[in-house]
Amino acid sequence: MLACRQLSKTYRTERGDVDAVVELDLEVEAGCYAAIIGRSGSGKSSLMAMIGGLSRPSGGTVTIDGTDIWRLGDDALARFRNGRIGFVFQFASLLPTLRLVDNVALPAMLGGARSSASTYDKASALLARMGLRDRVDAYPSEVSAGEQRRAAIARALINDPVLLLADEPTSDLDEQTEIEIMDELMGVNRELGTTLVLVTHNLALAEQAEQIVHIANGVLVA
């Protein structure tokens, strides 16, 4: 389902080039829950950004469901991200001027495939699934960090993605909320069959994954 071949990322800095990911090969089966672990600066977020079509690799390929995503043009890649990949970031990633329901509906509205009414129905249903039925009309600043993260998961699911990428989605949450958020993510993986790739430095979370990818200095360790 997901295949990376000879994937590399080099950042050019004033002090010279920095290799974040070096000729990395990786495969993740459809419906699998994979965890990418490593210390800070190991290159795991750079790897996820390349997998998600957010950061152009310096070399190598990323293939999702048979599509070599970095061979797509800008607009085609944007459409691919919109329709096939869901993102949950490590920060509160909701647009502050939109209500939760607008935030969740936004990717579908950007894609333009569905009518506004059905998009909003689905957005409300997803928020309800995440336990936010009564917070649909609230603005991000009016809900807790945990609720914001749940809304972000709902947004990631609005276009029925085949791949859900979560980049340290619980790093700034308390332990109880972290458990709840992880339950939601794994529930999506189990119940909807969505492939889940989680980037974390929390070994306890990684141990629940079916596949663990350990990176150090941009290189696959195990």
């Binding site: 998600g52 957010l54 800008d74 607009d75 944007a78 459409r79 991200r81 919109n82 329709g83 993102f87 970031f89 920060f91 990633s93 647009l95 936004l106 990717p107 950007l110 894609g111 947004r155 276009n159």
Partner: peptide, 13 residues
């Protein structure tokens, strides 16, 4: 950050 987020969730250029 917001613009990046919009691009990440599929906003075209």
């Amino acid at each position: 950050g917001e613009l990046g987020l919009l691009k990440a969730i599929g906003a075209r250029r």
